[in-house]
Design a protein around this nucleic acid. Structure first.
Lengths: 344, 344
DNA sequence: GGCTTGGATGTTAGCGCTAACATCTGGTTT
DNA sequence: AAACCAGATGTTAGCGCTAACATCCAAGCC
């Protein structure tokens, strides 16, 4: 004589879209079989699979990734943390990462720190909370608490751009050596009064590493290595302004070594307008190897870093680590190349 | 003689990180109270809140976003779908979106279609599966099945870049009018033999819309409107190549109207090297208003579209819709501006 | 025939959180 | 003093899926 009506179920929100259970009912199998059709189709008999696939199409099922990720404690998210989105360099790296990860079914979660370490730590926390499958982060230096948290984390961590011993995996190049390399080139060309000019160099410590390489080489040769900094983010406009200012305040300067190609190109384009001859009046060098440096006149002397390759290689390494494949070197030097144009 | 020990609980994976329950135990409250401290701190007594916050710090709790989103059927993800990451325009739009959404605690899920409608549909499905809070998608034209799926979806949808009546919200500009506007400018300057040149124009139909505006205006004035297309993605190199080819194969051309600034700048920089005078020998116009167009010599005549503003406005509209605020116009015209340089 | 075997499929019990409803305070009202 | 109330906190039942274990069944073997 029990109550034939169950007490009415509590209502939950839920857009009540069709679920796995609906598909299972529709195709006369269990939910786990539907799950298998989605996740490992080869483990289901073709006939069953087709039946399930037909049912999926019929009911218009869209799988709920949240539920799946929660149940398996794995989201197939790759957390990617970069310091800037205004800088083309990171866009190219992201492109390399995205292309490679996408092929393997991973989705990127993109975070932008704006060169702020606190913000970086917050982003790391959030992204770990999404059960990300791996983390790709820019640089080797982080907030202490952030580094500690990452060291406890059990999943692959890839630190990119800068070469060195990091938490786990690493793909990058030596910015110190790159700075040295360009300084050597300028010396070889006979320039002695050389100014280094960069923007936002307190946050962007890789630019500072390049400066240190540059400075050390010049000092070893008994030369001074003056540094000019601008607080604004790198842009053609800032390069032009930096150029004007250096020409006025440091007359006699023979060469300007800019922290990146955008600044350098801004300087060259401004020089063209102002009737200042590059390199006859002053030589100009950059760093990064952006395409437009090779289209302007004079072509820019720069150091080419393989930006997209960094992304691709980093992604491949991370995927290898996720799949448990052995990794030969946890640190990968992508190197750089001096590209001598007409501007030095 | 039954086993005195209960059958051992099944083990689940799970990185056994501390959970809400651990924090609750540690601070002597229930899990829901901890949840409230995290989600609506004002609804918890300050004393309790402090106790809970201390416990969170003590056990090193990191909240599991997947579980929360599943339970509430809302992920605070914003799905953003763009056709390309190589094009600076979309980077700037993304920047505008990201800055605004981040302030409100939303995380962007970025998808790149590479101008492929099938791929777009797949991305939409995946992103709906993440219980995204809203969708921002480029353009008004999608796969029919995709449009149908979106129309059934109950959450805010924002179609950007192109102005017109869409599925839900819309922020953009009229590409047809922009093309017409530039064509009018070229006519005003006295040019008559005008070539339109673009790349990947089958996928990038907004460039085609601009061409149609250009063509219609020229035809209304009794002129022909030849079109030159290149299959490669837009790049300085392609602009240079297009320029060379047009100068050879269409000698007598007075002006070239390029589909975007990158192509146009590539053409100008190449002309400079080749000793061809712009605009005396041939005029060149672009579209977008990228900063470097104003730094090269001659300064590029172009149409400026407010890229970052599109992102910011779109994000604000979406947030208003999510928060249930009234929206005056579901379609927002950000307009464009003719920027006359020295190249026409 | 009975036994083994392995591939296909099913059952169960969570993953960690929050919506909905329930209860418990302590102060205010009449 | 009983009734009332609002704000703080607790209990319960899922959200939709998958890992782990269980079962089934046809083929292969002696």
């Amino acid at each position: 004589m029990s109550n034939p009506e169950l007490p009415e179920r509590r209502k939950r929100r839920g857009a009540d879209n069709p679920t796995l259970a609906d598909v299972a009912r529709e195709s006369g199998v269990s939910t786990i079989t539907v799950s298998r059709v989605l996740n490992s189709p080869d483990s289901v008999r073709p006939a069953t699979r087709e039946r399930v696939e037909a049912a999926i199409a019929r009911v218009g099922y869209v799988r709920n990734m949240l539920a799946g990720s929660l149940a398996s404690a794995n989201s197939r998210f790759i957390a990617v943390i970069v310091p800037s989105l205004s800088n083309v360099v990171f866009i190219e790296v992201i492109h390399g990462l995205q292309t490679t990860f996408e092929k393997h079914g991973y989705q990127i979660l993109l975070g932008n720190t704006e060169y702020d370490m606190r913000r970086e730590y917050e982003l790391v926390q959030t992204f770990l909370g999404w059960s990300s499958s791996a983390l790709v982060i820019t640089g080797l230096r982080h907030d202490a608490a952030c580094t500690a948290m990452l060291k406890r984390w059990q999943k692959p961590i890839m630190e990119i751009m800068e070469l060195g011993q990091g938490i786990d995996l690493n793909v990058g190049l030596s910015h110190y050596d790159a700075g040295r390399c360009m300084a050597q080139h300028l010396l070889d060309r006979g320039y002695r009064r050389i100014v280094y000019a960069g923007s936002q160099m307190d946050g962007n410590y890789r630019a500072r590493l390049r400066y240190e390489g540059h400075r050390d080489l010049l000092q070893e040769n008994g030369l001074e290595a003056p540094l000019e900094e601008w607080p604004e983010a790198s842009a053609l406009e800032i390069g032009a302004r930096a150029f004007r200012q250096i020409m006025v305040q440091r007359s006699g300067t023979e060469a300007i070594h800019f922290a990146d190609d955008t600044l350098a190109a801004g300087a060259i384009l401004h020089a063209n307008r102002a009737g200042i001859r590059v390199p006859d009046d002053v030589a100009i060098a950059g760093f990064t190897g952006l395409p437009f440096g090779q289209h302007i006149t004079p072509r820019l002397t720069t150091i080419v870093s393989p930006r997209e390759a960094i992304g691709r290689i980093a992604a491949k390494q991370v995927i290898a680590r996720i799949e448990g494949k052995p990794i030969e070197n946890t640190s990968h030097d992508v190197s750089f190349e001096l590209c001598i144009g007409e501007s030095t």
